[in-house]
Design a protein around this nucleic acid. Structure first.
Length: 222
DNA sequence: ATATCGATTATCT
DNA sequence: GATAATCGATATG
């Protein structure tokens, strides 16, 4: 069996994270997601990345959260059941992927901020509009690899995640084509920092990164 | 190395 | 009308 297909079947058999995983405070879910897989079934092939960075947003008590002012048409998924995708469009250019947490009626979520690419690298590069030089193996391009999914907008582009297609999607089953799973990888050591790119509540330590991982967003890995 | 800026649109004031 | 949970390009030390 070709190594690519072997990897695919291995990844596809990783167990989807159940609703109960997300039925908790985002401050527990966000660090818990580090080391887990985000998977996308795209036109028959499998795209996958390992989560290396995530942020917690706390709902109506959190000024930086989209749910801060209560339920609106845009953020209704946040108030729905846990384990569902809240995808929003930002700066007229980018999508960002969140997972809803807490029981229905409470609005916490986790923003997935960076992935270490695991499978479907060429398709991700194509989706990102990145060109490969000649016939060199993608695996040999560390700079390009790091640009594939190291940021909330980048990872959505790499996996073809949009609000139109994916907002509200159930992320706890492979049947939905976009899901989260545990392949029993050793969880990374977690570093906690302030969240990125927000004005209010900027001092809160609610960003969680895999220590020393080069695929974390920004200029330096924390 | 860091700093600043333009793109481009949904959402809310 | 202002702002935004970003990115990539360009400018400057």
């Amino acid at each position: 069996m070709p190594v690519g297909r072997q990897l695919d079947s291995q990844l596809a058999s990783a167990s989807a994270l159940p609703h109960s995983f997300f039925l908790r405070d985002p401050r527990q879910v966000a660090p818990g997601l580090l080391g887990k897989l985000l998977l996308r079934r795209s036109r028959g092939s499998l795209l996958a990345g390992r989560i290396v960075e995530a942020e917690a947003y706390l709902g109506t008590g959190d000024d930086a959260a989209h749910a801060a002012a209560g339920l609106t048409p845009r953020n209704r998924v946040l108030f729905g059941p846990p384990g569902h995708a809240y995808v929003y469009f930002i700066y007229g250019n980018h999508y960002c992927l969140n997972v809803s947490c807490l029981p229905e009626g409470e609005a916490g979520c986790v923003l997935i901020r960076a992935l270490e690419p695991v499978a479907g690298l060429r398709q991700m590069a194509r989706a990102r509009g990145l060109r490969l030089a000649g016939c060199t193996l993608l695996e040999a391009h560390p700079l390009l690899l790091r640009n594939l999914a190291s940021g909330p907008g980048r990872l959505c582009q790499a996996l073809g995640i949009t609000r139109e297609r994916d907002n509200g999607r159930d992320l706890t089953t492979s049947r939905s084509g976009l899901w989260l799973a545990d392949d029993n990888a050793v969880p990374p050591r977690v570093v906690v920092t302030p969240r990125i790119g927000i004005r209010s509540s900027a001092g809160e330590m609610l960003r969680y990164v895999a220590a020393g991982n080069p695929f974390v967003s920004g200029r330096r890995a924390a």
